[in-house]
Design a binder for these strands. Structure first.
Lengths: 112, 112
DNA sequence: TTCTTATGCATAATAAACTTAGGTATATAT
DNA sequence: ATATATACCTAAGTTTATTATGCATAAGAA
């Protein structure tokens, strides 16, 4: 990942966004989903993901539900009500940020 | 700055990009330019900027030229040849990153 | 059957990139 | 006079990630 450092700060928002559209997901699933959606561009490391999930849970934005599939443990996360509200805010911020970066880096591009 | 943490990792590329189009700039000028270009969205703090400039200089990507204007010191930075090459690479990375983020956060948007 | 890869969780040590908070100094506007 | 703008700088602390581990089960290859 050449640009891995670039997505610093946006990991939490990405997690919230995915949970918002997928309903519930478990950690490993999130890493695979992001990898797939970005054609391998963004690789979320587990050392970043799990602490992030725990923190979001501690902040009351996520709820956990443990499940056992194929004799393996899974921890499904989903947004709390507070989490849904926060997702709206953080997504707006991230979108605004992306627009700003776009405008800085390549003012010729237009976003629709 | 709600989203100030979001531009982590992209500061160096922003600096290089600005120097590429402006020819030469001094530190304070860069902070004002970015603020203006982003309508106040991105506020580069001096504690981030100056160490970044020094590091880019140490890496051989920037050259410095000291000037005195109105009895005040200015350090003008400009790209070295190596800096110009690096700028191309880093800009490409940043653009690719922006596309990925765009696609993750809002797949409905199209970029032209 | 053994070994590797994939799935699934987790944490500790380290590093990178910031913010915050200070410091110095001159010019300009109130 | 005093505050604001200009112009540079660094040190301490924080956030956020990477790297390196560790544990455990399932599936596939050698």
């Amino acid at each position: 990942m050449g640009n891995s450092k670039l997505y610093k700060g946006s990991l939490n928002t990405i997690i919230l966004k995915l949970l918002d559209e997928q309903g519930k997901m478990y950690g490993y699933e999130i890493t695979q989903k992001v990898k797939a959606l970005t054609q391998g561009e963004l690789q979320i490391t587990e050392g970043a993901l799990y602490p992030a999930l725990h923190k979001l849970e501690a902040e009351g934005l996520l709820d956990v539900e443990v499940a056992k599939v194929d004799n393996r443990l899974r921890k499904y996360y989903k947004l709390t009500e507070a989490g849904e509200k926060e997702t709206v805010n953080r997504l707006a911020e991230l979108e605004e940020f992306i627009r700003s970066m776009q405008n800085l880096v390549n003012p010729n591009w237009s976003i629709n």
